Amino acid sequence: MRMDLSIAGQQFSLLENFKDDTRLRASFNALTHQTFEFDFEQWYQDGYWGEGYQPWALAHDGRIVANISVNLMHFDVLGEPRRGIQLGTVMVAPEYRGQGLSRVLLERVLDRWQGQCELVYLFANDTVLDYYPKFGFARVLEHEYSASLTPADRPCSFNRVDMDDLLERQRFISAVDSAVPVARLAMRSNPDQTMFYCTSFFKDCVHYSPALQAYVVMEIVDGVMTLYEVFARRALDLQALIAELSTPQTTRVVLGFAPLDSSGFEVQPLVSDDSLFVLGQAGQFIEDARLMFPLLSHA
């Protein structure tokens, strides 16, 4: 879709559904790389940029200069299905800032989606904490789960998965699609989002256990294990799995999700560079139930 708009005395084009336009996608990726130091081109070429990721962009003289992306999200929340949209890839080219371009995009996205889903949310850094409440968003506190570790005294059955191997990728995607939830707030039906991370930032963090028929996405840095996600077709003992993954030097585990069974874990308010904002009061249950959006669901 394309619509011409006049903003601050200049003519812009509002663009949607342009991912298959080579020129516009290149312009979008250039602004993404300028803003965030990554882009979506390989994700697109690998076939993972599906209909669940929908940029809304403003172009000036054929160049994309502002964007807000809509991510269609499905979750199991305390056992109940919920549908929402996550706003992300919010960016404006430096020379176009201060002209209200983000406001125009955000208002149009909210006009389209408000009332059509149960949650509209986003993550924002400290520089814009006062901006989103102007549009009806409320800051919501998430909670993080962690525990001290005692490594298992048996060999680890997990081996790193080569995510450059296309067959291994297909096996992993199948496991993601059929996995039982391990979190009280669990992302569902969105392997494309998982693959965004697991073919780029976390491609060396995917491990598989034939014995458990389970995948994990995890890394250990300076003795602290971050367990981002577990994908298994049957329920597993999370504490036993963590103990098996740990090394003699691992002293602590931090979860990238709020576990179904929180016994044995410490829970505390999440300290992060990004804060969660949810439209209206729809996100209060997240704070009340001490939940967090899984880290691999962040867009």
Rank of each mutant, 00 (worst) to 15 (best):
Y48I: 09
D39F: 10
N190W: 05
A240E: 09
D61K: 14
P155D: 13
Y132L: 03
G280M: 04
S246M: 02
L106N: 05
K19Y: 11
E41I: 06
E144M: 04
L241R: 02
L241K: 01
Y145S: 06
D46S: 10
Q11Y: 10
V278T: 07
R188Q: 13
L5A: 11
Q99N: 09
A66R: 01
L5I: 15
L105C: 10
D61M: 05
V230G: 01
Q193W: 09
W113N: 03
R97D: 05
L270K: 14
A282M: 01
Q11M: 06
D192S: 10
E95C: 07
A258N: 02
Q114Y: 14
K203I: 12
A30S: 11
G9V: 11
R83E: 12
D204M: 02
L119Y: 14
Y44A: 07
I242T: 07
T150P: 00
R188Y: 13
D20S: 13
A214E: 03
S157L: 08
D237Q: 04
S246Y: 08
T127I: 11
Q170C: 05
Y48A: 06
I242D: 01
S297V: 10
V221M: 00
D46A: 09
Q34L: 10
R103M: 02
R171L: 14
A211G: 08
G223Y: 06
I7Q: 01
H33W: 14
G88F: 10
V206M: 01
Y44P: 00
